[in-house]
Amino acid sequence: MEIAVLADIHGNLAALDAVLADCALHGVDQLVVLGDHFSGPLLPFETAERLISLAPTAIAGNHERQLLTQSLHEMGETDRFTCQALAPHHFDWMTGLPATLRLENDILLVHGTPTSDTAYFLETVSAEGLHPATQVEIVARAEGTDARIILCGHTHIQRKVAFGDGRLAINPGSVGLPAYEDTEPFPHQISNTSPHARYALLNDANGDWAASFHTVAYDWEQAAQIAERNGRPEWARALRTGRL
């Protein structure tokens, strides 16, 4: 079995379509999506229509939770734009998404960590900045699950980490947004340094899971121009360059 693992599409339809085309070349058996599907100043409605039509195995991210639970006044600029663009059936679909999901017995899907959709799993943020999490930190964040494979998103960084006990954590990177900044728990930036869409393939060879990372070119200039038209020049910079 070959599973395509996508995360953090953020309403970037062109990036999603490019990744789906690449998945088709690999003969993917199953599509898994790890949250933050539509929220972005791009094409949230069109992305929702496309993704939902595929009937993927999907979970919610922090942006789905925010879209479903916050008022327009409480939302940030990106979620507010998205909320006003989506249709009622898109919210119905998001309502049915679990926060985590066990797949194939061996695999756990999470957005951030098994217990939080906003905490970083494979990275740590301190007052000094962002750095890869230590083995001790990662094992502690996985406490309470015996899944051999934990698939996570949220940080938009492609990374896999072996626990040393046969378990593996994998972040496929972001399909739709290669760079962003955040203020929690300390101000920091994520910059993948290139504008490509990112995803992972998970392959089961007789019960022995292996992961490979993929980067895909697409028309990021078109996506950047949409962000500019929607008043988000910082998104346009990130989409064009993978940097802030």
Rank of each mutant, 00 (worst) to 15 (best):
L177H: 04
H10M: 00
L51P: 08
E46A: 08
A18R: 03
R141P: 07
G27W: 08
E228W: 07
G242V: 04
G27L: 10
A147I: 12
E181W: 10
A4F: 06
L122P: 06
G27H: 07
R243P: 04
S53T: 04
A217E: 13
A15R: 02
L51A: 07
F163V: 11
A7T: 01
N105S: 15
E128C: 12
G96T: 07
F38P: 05
Q189I: 14
W220C: 12
L101T: 03
E46R: 00
C152T: 14
S53Q: 05
T115A: 10
Y180V: 08
L177M: 11
A140S: 15
A18K: 01
G40C: 04
G129Q: 01
G231K: 09
R65I: 14
S71W: 07
R80P: 12
E104V: 01
A205R: 15
A140W: 11
A133I: 00
P44G: 03
A142R: 13
Q222S: 14
N230S: 13
F163Q: 13
H188K: 03
G231A: 10
V33W: 00
D36S: 02
A119C: 06
Q189V: 15
P178F: 06
I226P: 02
I138Y: 03
G176A: 03
H73C: 11
A205W: 09
F186Y: 15
P114K: 07
T193M: 14
W235T: 05
A14M: 13
V32Y: 10
A24N: 12
D22W: 00
S194H: 14
S116E: 03
V19S: 11
L108F: 11
L97W: 03
L97M: 04
G144Q: 06
E77M: 11
R167E: 09
H63A: 02
A217H: 08
S212Q: 15
Q158P: 02
G35E: 09
V125D: 10
D29S: 14
G112A: 03
F38E: 07
Q189H: 11
D165M: 04
V5I: 10
A119I: 01
L101C: 09
S71L: 07
I157F: 10
L97V: 04
H89R: 13
P178Q: 08
T113R: 00
A223E: 06
D29G: 12
N230G: 13
G27N: 10
E228Y: 07
H63T: 05
F38V: 12
A169L: 13
D208Y: 06
R102P: 00
L20E: 11
P44F: 01
A205P: 06
T82G: 02
W209Q: 06
S53D: 09
W93H: 02
D146E: 14
A48F: 06
P187Y: 10
R232K: 15
K160E: 11
L25W: 07
A197D: 05
A169E: 09
L20W: 09
T193H: 15
I157W: 08
V19C: 15
Q158W: 01
L54W: 03
E128T: 15
F45P: 00
A223R: 01
L34G: 01
L43T: 14
N105I: 08
R80S: 13
A60W: 02
I149G: 04
V216L: 04
A133M: 02
E46W: 02
R232A: 14
G27Y: 08
A210Q: 14
T155W: 00
L16N: 05
N192L: 12
E143G: 03
